[in-house]
Design a protein around this nucleic acid. Structure first.
Lengths: 205, 205, 205, 205
DNA sequence: CATGAATGAGTATTCATTCAT
DNA sequence: AATGAATGAATACTCATTCAT
């Protein structure tokens, strides 16, 4: 059955190339013709592999959700102190600003094209969200979920503000501020701290 | 004398009814005909009051912003300390959760349907964003813009997470945490504080 | 019956102001609202005086036809020789270029809005055309109709070329050329010349 | 391979059928839907071959211009003298009178629906106009542009007068007159003459 | 008389989708 | 499998005209 293998593989190749196309213009604005052109195929071929624009998009969203974050977040690991971690987070956001904005657009588009009740049951979406949160837990060295939710929300909001054209926000500055606030806050609420990370610096500053 | 209509007042009435219409389908998906039908007028009449779909949206945004600000102000004005303010903010968010989710969704959808470069030059939306930020400045009694940006981003992100179906986030809990973090942070960085608000409680906890 | 007089008079006043409005944008492009604004009245008032856009335009066309050319053509009278006359014609065309282009547009619009068979019977239109031709006859001092038709056609074409955006045509230069051609041609075909004008200069050059 | 259609050839077929459609209603009044119906295709197909109404018209203009030039050339090529050329031109105009009137009408109507400033920059229309002028240059055997402009304007005006319902103008008579005037004028201004054409007849009459 | 709010069919153009080749 | 021609309903927006006040 080599044909089936080829078909499936080619479909995935096309799907991969779709991320940038959707992200650049958004689900609503990009046309199937533009996608076909971007992929270097005809609209007929595109419809041969994907039954509709909606289906294509849903497959893409699923694909994105299943991407592994670990490599991306690995960049943040070198930091010695919380402050350094947060500053690394800031640099990471700056570097990937465009990507995150695109990602947010696609995500919102995805939400728009599902009934919200199905959404909540959509395990893929939920799992992805959770994974992000866990990554933040590790970064902070904290077990509690309230603080990581705080950080995740803050980061989401940072990206959202940029998406809204707010040019006055500086990711580096904001993350540094987050670092200082955590550093000021955590020593006063020590019960929630994991043992993994050294917060001695917090007491020095 | 024409038919007795207070143009300005009728415009505002129409505007108010538009929020739900946009919320149902999003900026991009709803058509001017559907809006007109929803308002019970003809498309011609709709265009008599609003020169374009975009202008209609921008006027709605301005209206919404002013309403938000005045309700929020009323809601938060009883608070004596920063902590109380933040807790009131949490309650306010919970109370209007659906509304904020819808509004955030509409706004993002609008942004996606414009060139981001044109968006940035759009003075109405810019000014609207600024006014939210200024309100936070007043709330915190702070002149600096970094900290208000922090708070705005955090609140945005909170709503965005909910929009994405994250049910584990608790607005009250999160805002209380924000209050504690600010309370821990601000006394150590007193230069940025206005005189208006009393932070003595921060030293007690 | 003072009311009727006022009504009629006001209608004529409005009509006069319409020429520029129609000429600037053309029948098809100008809207009744724009006309009303240009006249400083409401659309309702405009419709009070003119039953429809078409009727307004037809009344305007009639008015234009009935305008007397004598004042305009008086400018050409000072010339002593044919060559001078033609050069004066060139200057006259340059001075009134915009007016003639507008006039041509309106004229074409008028033709468009009549069946051509009615057009041919339209005595006003015909009479106006004739009057132009007669004016040229006087200018040339010629009784024959072929030569004046030639000149009229040439002038029409000059304006038409300008209307088509041909910037390389110079009215002065072209009319001077017409003068030279007539001066070269007429002495060889003297039978058609009236006695009024002196063409001795033609033999000198 | 798609449906077997020679895109380019089909486009020209459609274009040819467009002339009559434009002639019936004018550029401004005919709608793309009506054109599509007249061609027996859907609006989608029409836009598949022509990106816009304006582009459709410009392509038509180009096509028409090329056809005109080749038919005119065939018609006039037998002429031995300038006078014969002009008489052939007259016969050619008479033969195609209706066609030229329609085309002139369409063209003016098109100009009215554009900003004249944008029109001037429109290279397609400019080039089309230029080609007519160049053809006259070749016909007259003249390099200078003033005289060809004269002839072009005259011919334009002849048609315009007919368009306005002037029945007294006779193309043959007028063109013969043009021939005589040129024949009288040119020998006295020999510097501008090319070598290609024989003007000896001019000296005989 | 005068106003301008209201109408709704009409405009150029777009685009997801189908299907003959 | 692959192509791209064909479709036609849908989009934002316009405008001559009507009519209640």
């Amino acid at each position: 059955m080599p044909k089936i293998v080829d078909h499936e593989q080619y479909r995935k190749e096309l799907l991969d190339k779709c991320f940038d196309l959707f992200a650049q213009k958004g689900y609503g604005s990009i046309t199937m013709r533009q996608i076909a052109e971007g992929l270097g195929v005809s609209t007929g071929t595109l419809y041969h592999y994907f039954p509709s624009k909606q289906a294509l998009f849903e497959q893409l969203a699923q694909e994105i959700c299943e991407q592994d974050l670990s490599t991306a977040l690995a960049e943040l690991e070198g930091a010695q102190t919380l402050q350094e971690s947060m500053e690394a987070l800031g640099r990471y956001l700056v570097k990937n600003e465009d990507y995150f904005i695109k990602w947010t657009y696609i995500w919102i588009d995805f939400c728009q094209h599902k009934d919200s009740k199905k959404m909540l049951r959509n395990s893929i979406l939920k799992r992805t969200n959770q994974r992000y949160q866990e990554a933040i837990c590790d970064l902070l060295g904290i077990q509690d979920s309230v603080l990581p939710s705080f950080v995740v929300s803050f980061v989401d909001g940072l990206i959202l503000e940029k998406l809204w054209g707010n040019e006055t926000i500086d990711f580096i500055e904001q993350c540094a501020l987050l670092g200082k606030m955590l550093t000021a806050y955590l020593p006063q609420h020590p019960a929630k701290i994991k043992t993994k990370m050294d917060f001695s610096s917090a007491f020095e500053s």
